[in-house]
Amino acid sequence: MARRSGGGPGTRIASVADFESWAARQSPAELAEPFTYVVGADGLLCLAPRRSEHVACAGGAAVLGAGEITFVREAGQWAASEVGNQSTGYCPDVTSWPAVARALDGIPLRRPAAFTHEVVFRRCPACAEHNIVREGDFVCVFCGSDLPKAWNVEVDDVGRSAHP
């Protein structure tokens, strides 16, 4: 049975039955929008309403992946049609995709071959601000310093990791 995750508003999904039970409780309007997701350290998908914070969805725990996900029903089966890594709470690297794919495969739900929307996060070494890199421009929007090419947001200020 689907159950709430450690104190957050997210629901852990370990099977098709869990997913279908969760989906049946969503309105058609909610199902038309993306949802907040995290993949916990246990490798399970956890879902919450789109306006939920990723850290709350995970109950404050470390995650292997985080972002937004959209589901569609095709040929009588549910599928993840769009999956991204946009989470300013965890700033997961694009290399978190394999953990997300394993979580979806473990349910199993059909999914894209990769993130359909990738966000590149970097922490500025000069001012420590988090940045979203746009159009390959690795320059801090806060202080103008160069950003590293490699992902460097391994641990946030309270020790949560968002890296597989």
Rank of each mutant, 00 (worst) to 15 (best):
M1E: 13
S5A: 14
S5R: 13
S5N: 10
G6K: 01
S15H: 04
E20V: 06
S21N: 11
W22D: 07
A23R: 15
A24T: 05
S27G: 07
S27R: 06
P28R: 06
L31Q: 12
L31V: 11
F35M: 09
T36P: 00
V39H: 06
G43T: 01
L44I: 01
L47T: 14
S52M: 02
E53H: 08
H54K: 10
V55E: 09
A56P: 00
A58E: 12
A62C: 13
A66M: 11
R73N: 04
A75D: 15
G76K: 13
Q77F: 12
Q77L: 11
G84W: 00
T88I: 07
T88S: 14
C91M: 02
P92H: 02
T95A: 14
W97Y: 13
W97P: 04
P98A: 02
G106R: 07
R110H: 11
R111E: 10
P112R: 03
T116D: 08
E118R: 12
E118V: 08
A126E: 12
C127N: 08
N131E: 01
R134C: 01
R134L: 09
D137P: 01
F138M: 04
V141P: 01
V141W: 03
G144A: 03
S145P: 04
A150I: 12
W151P: 05
W151T: 00
V153I: 07
V155N: 05
G159F: 01
R160W: 12
R160L: 14
A162F: 14
